[in-house]
Design a protein around this nucleic acid. Structure first.
Lengths: 142, 142
DNA sequence: CTTGATGCAAAGCGTTTGCATGGTA
DNA sequence: TACCATGCAAACGCTTTGCATCAAG
């Protein structure tokens, strides 16, 4: 997990990549995201702050930022993928209503622990997970 | 969960929809899928068996078949969504290696129970879930 | 200077949609 | 006969890619 710019610089150099202005803008922008975001909302948000980065560059850098632990995958809708700043708040997963698309968050220590055990049992090094519960929310059940 | 054709007929009529040949072909085809499949592989497989259904019809019917409990979402890769026959075998979730894309299955009663509780606590009627653990498999860790 | 990174535009590709036709009830 | 469902083709929208240019080192 990359916590500071220095760490990211080490990470990126270790990969033989360059520390560009765009990558720094991306990190700064991502750290300011309060919650979930997708590529589109991130680009729009950056632009508002005078930090212009092309959508293409975001797509090209997301795998790197994921690997560096700057962002984490959050959840996916049928249309696109949502991310979140890896340290924006405590990790959580999602409940999604298939009718109104409302998203609720949940956190369950039991599940987290069990996941880790499952990964170990299978010889996997767990990096992240995607856990979505889909159904009908209170309102839409009626 | 729809177990037999009669049940599906009841389900579809209840929705005011029609029991078409294509829908029956789809159900038959899905029941024959041994494991995971996506829209493309399903259409191809059906065609090989002389059961022609257009890709469009598959897309249009998937939501219905999900609701009827004939298929279940299985997991998603960056490219597309995979499904499985709802009764092909006991429910399971997935471990995915981000390096070689190998998919392993797991089943954890503790997690299943906890999920149900989370849903209830939030007033959700849980219909299905998508739980993917992503990381590096034993081979790719080296 | 060398070479990776960026931006633009175009291509890819899974999915959705409009519309005429066909099949169910 | 009435109307939903299907297939075709085109449209959509997110993501990827080719290529000339820019900039990090």
């Amino acid at each position: 997990m990359v916590k500071h710019q220095k760490e990211f610089e080490g990470f990126i150099r270790g990969k033989g990549c360059r520390l560009t202005g765009e990558r720094l803008k991306l990190i700064a922008g991502i750290k300011r995201q309060p919650g979930h975001f997708n590529v589109d909302s991130l680009v729009t948000c950056l632009k508002k702050q005078g930090l212009k980065v092309s959508r293409d560059t975001v797509y090209r850098n997301l795998p790197i930022l994921l690997e560096a632990g700057v962002v984490a995958q959050s959840f996916r809708t049928s249309r696109d993928t949502y991310y979140e700043c890896a340290r924006s708040k405590a990790h959580h997963d999602h409940l999604i209503c298939r009718a109104c698309n409302r998203v609720a968050e949940f956190k369950d220590v039991t599940i987290e622990r069990a996941q880790q055990q499952v990964a170990e049992k299978n010889g996997f090094k767990l990096e992240y997970h995607c856990h979505q519960l889909v159904g009908l929310c209170k309102k839409c059940r009626k």
